[in-house]
């Protein structure tokens, strides 16, 4: 259609007929759509404090300790030598489950003469505040690591670590001396992805089967 010679007069101006109404309809649609959608602000869920609060593995157990330091309540009056064949702890200690590998005698660690202390190699006593000295009798390499700071939990300052600025934890903060295998149960939930993200559990096909 060649209307350039005659000008556009007489012909319908399709530009006006089509574009202007289309734009008007879109205009209304856009405005209505924007006004109709209201987004409710989502409230961010707070984190559970136990997920991020530092705790040692036996933190709570240690707070409930009743025995340590008060052994004299019973043992001041009864210091008789025990039967070396008894493996199961008795009386007040019957709740203790001893699971310390080959180390299955109470008096390997506890000093017979003074129940408030632990046994050192030379038969003298170790104060319970120095419990690491006891563990070091067998676990010397780990003790060395612990002294150097590469074994165990630390908090505080990495720089200029003096005794006051660094919180160091002893063996028993994390390991139950009667069952020293590391135990920790306070696990936290997995990450979540936005709803629109489609994920698959990747474990399904091991790489060796991928060419099937």
């Amino acid at each position: 259609m060649n209307n350039s010679a005659a000008g556009s007069s007489g012909d319908k101006n399709w530009g006006l007929v089509l574009v202007v109404p289309a734009c008007a309809v879109l205009f209304i649609l856009f405005v209505v759509f924007t006004l109709a959608t209201s987004d409710e602000p989502t409230v961010a869920q707070p984190l559970e404090p136990s997920w991020f609060t530092p705790t040692t593995a036996r933190g709570e157990d240690l707070q409930n300790k009743v025995m340590v330091g008060s052994c004299y309540l019973c043992h001041a009056y009864w210091t008789g030598l025990p039967d070396p064949d008894v493996v199961r702890p008795q009386f007040a200690h019957s709740a203790i489950q001893l699971d310390h590998g080959a180390n299955d005698r109470c008096y390997n660690c506890h000093l017979i003469q003074d129940r408030n202390k632990y046994t050192a190699n030379d038969g003298s006593g170790i104060m319970h505040t120095n419990v690491e000295q006891l563990c070091a009798r067998c676990h010397g390499l780990i003790y060395n690591d612990w002294v150097a700071g590469t074994h165990g939990v630390q908090r505080g300052q990495w720089m200029t670590p003096t005794a006051f600025e660094r919180q160091n934890f002893k063996c028993t903060h994390c390991h139950d001396p009667h069952a020293p295998a590391f135990k920790f149960e306070k696990y936290t939930p997995p990450p979540v992805w936005p709803e629109q993200i489609e994920r698959q559990r990747a474990e399904a096909p091991p790489p060796s089967e991928k060419t099937e």
Binding site: N3, S8, W14, G15, V17, L18, V19, A22, C23, F30
Partner: peptide, 19 residues
């Protein structure tokens, strides 16, 4: 701005999609 109906239909559709 001058064209046949087909041109303007094409034009309008594209314009609407772009908007």
């Amino acid at each position: 701005f001058q064209g046949s109906r087909a041109y303007w239909v094409w034009f309008t559709v594209l314009l609407a999609l772009a908007l």
